[in-house]
Design a binder for these strands. Sequence first.
DNA 1: CGGATCTTTGATCACAGTCAAAAAGCGTGG
DNA 2: CCACGCTTTTTGACTGTGATCAAAGATCCG
Lengths: 257, 257
Amino acid sequence: MSLTHSPQQAAAVLPLFRDIPEREKDELLKAGRLRTLKKGEKLFRRGDALNTLYILVEGALRQYRETPDGKEVTLGMVLQGDMADGAQAFEQFDSYQWSTIAAEDSILLEYPAFWFREKVKSHNQLALNLIVAMSKQANITAIAAEQRITFSAAQRVACFLLRTCAIHSFNPKDFELPYSKGTIASALGMELETFSRTLQKLRDVGVAVQKARVTIKDVHALECFICDHCSLAGECETITTLEKSCPSGNVAFTKPA
Amino acid sequence: MSLTHSPQQAAAVLPLFRDIPEREKDELLKAGRLRTLKKGEKLFRRGDALNTLYILVEGALRQYRETPDGKEVTLGMVLQGDMADGAQAFEQFDSYQWSTIAAEDSILLEYPAFWFREKVKSHNQLALNLIVAMSKQANITAIAAEQRITFSAAQRVACFLLRTCAIHSFNPKDFELPYSKGTIASALGMELETFSRTLQKLRDVGVAVQKARVTIKDVHALECFICDHCSLAGECETITTLEKSCPSGNVAFTKPA
DNA sequence: CGGATCTTTGATCACAGTCAAAAAGCGTGG
DNA sequence: CCACGCTTTTTGACTGTGATCAAAGATCCG
């Protein structure tokens, strides 16, 4: 994965520009500017004037809010193809409602917000894509909310590990955590200390972690550990993806409960 | 508030149909059907085929998911003018991702989903309104998520009481809870027992509850109790609304901490 | 090598969940 | 009007999870 793209290359991947006629797509692409962000850099802060719309081409961002008494709550992660602020850009607000920081080195495509809003008004397919994107986002948020309530810390961590493999096509037998443990903990709605302790406990289920390197012995054992408590059950995209990539052949030891 | 409307009357209020030329609006209205729902009736269940789009004209709905082991998680409430399933209707799914039940007697406007999707494709203003609505929704969800994490049970309850007054223009000195305590507890992400106990504790801050009747002695005292921990701080719509309706004149006793 | 930052480990504690049972309210029908 | 059953709410006692505070280890980087 090189970190050099043209807007054209970048946009080819973006679901937001799907099914848009070439002519209009070109126009959209010419107006966009690529921007890189180093890990730890803030993209915008809550309260900043909302005048740019960002689409993530590569990397990962963390959305968060902070309370007056200094606590920080992670609302969600922005992954490849997501808008960093799409949900806000069309509200009545003229300032950002949450802050966004790079969880790792990232590349964004940026547009003047007012300009993009105009395009959405005139390009119907774009509006539709935007709706679909927001719809998808709402669904992810709903599931995350559910899990924060029904899942134990261990289950949330386990689910995160599997999801990570599915999203990035990692091999569960050996992969690296996508961002720092502090960030992951926060994204899962738990304290770093809890996250650390939880990783230990997961050794019993065949998860070994050394530094950022993770080894999952038996994916199916982990699934059992989680999915019985998850309302997604069979329809979980993570699971179906994993099943495809390692169709129970790669399972070393299947220990039924 | 009578429970008899024509679609025309109903739609006049709906933000989704704002700024739409009369001719098109009429067409939209003729296609919609009014439907009533008794408290406790389910509108749809997770997994049902998604073929209708619902807009709430009056009443309140509760969106929830249930896990295989029988727990129920409330995702949010649908209030006047909201779509019951807007976020889902434009996803790739063909079935509902969460269930919806009437928290009180309600009136809905319903459309065939496919038909509505077509309208959104051709009526640009409608698409825009939809985007704004989803945007608003995402924001509410984000705030709710934050509060479930940073707020104590007492603060969540207190915030809910104030919000209720603001939304329904209730007089904080004497109003009725909008739906059953079980429903409220669930919406706040806590157990009914916890909710019950919490109401007791709030007596210390001047909140008296008898059956469903609530009396808030000192709105500002309650605000102090909550808002210091809330990232919305000054920009909270609830607070600004309340300030307008009872501009610190109605405060009986201001007890600074 | 020094000083950051990030992570682990330890000990303690409070909040809210759970289980259980009593009480209050509500609707129905005799 | 009361009796009955059903749902909703309250109260009680107990418990576990994860937050918090504190300090020691790692790791990174100039």
